[in-house]
Design a binder for these strands. Sequence first.
DNA 1: TTGAAAGCGCTAACAA
DNA 2: TTGTTAGCGCTTTCAA
Lengths: 347, 347
Amino acid sequence: MIHKDVTIYDIAETLNISPATVSRGLKDHPGIRKDTKKRILDAALKMGYQQNKFASNLRRKSTNTIGVIVPRLNSYFMSTVISGMEKVANANGYNLIISQSQESFKKEIDSVTTMYNSRVDGLMISLAYDTKSTSHFETLLRKQIPLIFFDRIIEHPNCTSIVIDNKKAGYEATQHLIEQGCKRIVHIDGNVNRNVYAHRLEGYRQALIESGIGFDPSLVISNRLTDQTSAEAAQHILSMENIPDGIFTANDTSAVACIRELKRAGIRVPQDIAVVGFNNDPISMVIEPNLTTVDYPGQEMGEIAATTLINKLNKQPTGNLNTIVLRHKLIVRESSMRREKSNPIIL
Amino acid sequence: MIHKDVTIYDIAETLNISPATVSRGLKDHPGIRKDTKKRILDAALKMGYQQNKFASNLRRKSTNTIGVIVPRLNSYFMSTVISGMEKVANANGYNLIISQSQESFKKEIDSVTTMYNSRVDGLMISLAYDTKSTSHFETLLRKQIPLIFFDRIIEHPNCTSIVIDNKKAGYEATQHLIEQGCKRIVHIDGNVNRNVYAHRLEGYRQALIESGIGFDPSLVISNRLTDQTSAEAAQHILSMENIPDGIFTANDTSAVACIRELKRAGIRVPQDIAVVGFNNDPISMVIEPNLTTVDYPGQEMGEIAATTLINKLNKQPTGNLNTIVLRHKLIVRESSMRREKSNPIIL
DNA sequence: TTGAAAGCGCTAACAA
DNA sequence: TTGTTAGCGCTTTCAA
């Protein structure tokens, strides 16, 4: 009953040839007779041969496995990214090993170690909320294991990063609010140690300064951007003596939580306070008023990250870029429309 | 510059002991002197030793890797499930390899083959939309590789399934609509080849029959339950000559799409048509009116699936259950509240 | 075009 | 408590 694995030795024996020849026949080895190859393939099929990857990996010192470390799996954006990665990896014969850092630097280090021990051929990572250094990647890099950062990145020579232009996106979002007549715009932001949040803030700042309104640090609220904490931020905004007329927040979860809180307090969105989010999550289309937000191409980001990594592994010249910037897009919906005049893209 | 791997032989040589002893010292092998173990561990650390899993896998014929195949990664429910699985797997020293069937039977077969070739120790799977047979699992099962079905399952001896009681949930959802005074209730359902949809339909049917309203097959709409197709289903409902007063739909995406379409057509929810969804996705809390739905414990389902599988791999007696049914819960919100009287759970 | 042989790094049966 | 030894199944020189 217990089924013994068929090995190349079994095939070799059956065919009265050497295991080496079988090994060659199974691959596209140059210099093997066509008919020999056919005999091997036929026998393999008939005998139910399955390659033993470990033996092969051990011998070749490569695994056809790619690691992915993300802060959390269960967000719309992240699952979209991973979906894109899986698609490309799968199409190229790579497996994906996935691990969550749970937003913790410590768990991120553990995950990197696990990936390293699993001998991944390459690693794609989006950093945890509180990751402070990059020393945990050194072991990988010393072994020339390619590392790709996406979304929450850190600058590192030899590593490609995939991002959108968060500064520009932040600028556009803020600029849009200003165009809608907002004079006092709050920004709810994440940890500014993370590029994405720092850059969105920077864009916000620049737009305010350029417009002549000026940047007021007391209008920046640092937040973990969850449902809970964003509702608290909204409460804080409501308690300000000089109530703002616009909110630009660094993700949609946060924007939606704010809108709900504001509405509960009798504030009209967008008439009293206009709101702009970030990510273009499905919830942005469901909240009323529909949320103005920045479209973040998650699936594409995943596909490009994986493609870049695989190119690198195959030593393709295209695999050696430093930073890839994807296109984002401000999507204007009702939550920020205070002027009839403007002629925005409505989705 | 190119860093040669440190092996147990290097450690053995440094310490003047045998590789076997080093191997033992690195594990929690019984019968090794404490101080020897300490010396080995110290040396390993100092020399930067990293275990080579392939050699170990090859030797032990086990991989510490668990495969997961899901229809799609990018849904709230699924990413929650996977998050739970990852947590448990990680805590027990297992890696997770993840693959998407993209709802296609054909791709599901490919994924199973890949998992098989990767020599996963066990596999967890939620079936694709159109999977019709189980013969693609036979190779795995013949090799005693444990298989766990979750959510979209199929009955199979020797395999544990993790589900909720979809029939009961469908019954409760429908019953609730009946209690709210609905007399003509439409059910939007998925492919009834999948247990989850078949059972929800069955619960719906039973509730209608028991209540005396009776079951009318023309009120059942079979649908892929996406945004798009559900909006079409809503249009179909609006075009019925005898417009229904209740909709029970098999997921929240679909419910939300319906509500939006109904509102656009000037129908009041819940006064004209009451709506109940399924899953308790975050969007259910965002749509107005907030959606009555069935809470589906995704994270828990993932954790339990992984725990069960790992128990099985460790030959724990608890790993041998046939079906595990998790608790669901009808969450009543505004989208179905037509009566003041009732005293429902409001979240 | 094929074969012989060595070895990837680790583990486990057996012996000491 | 430790060492010896023999592979796990595959790939890849080198030789034929």
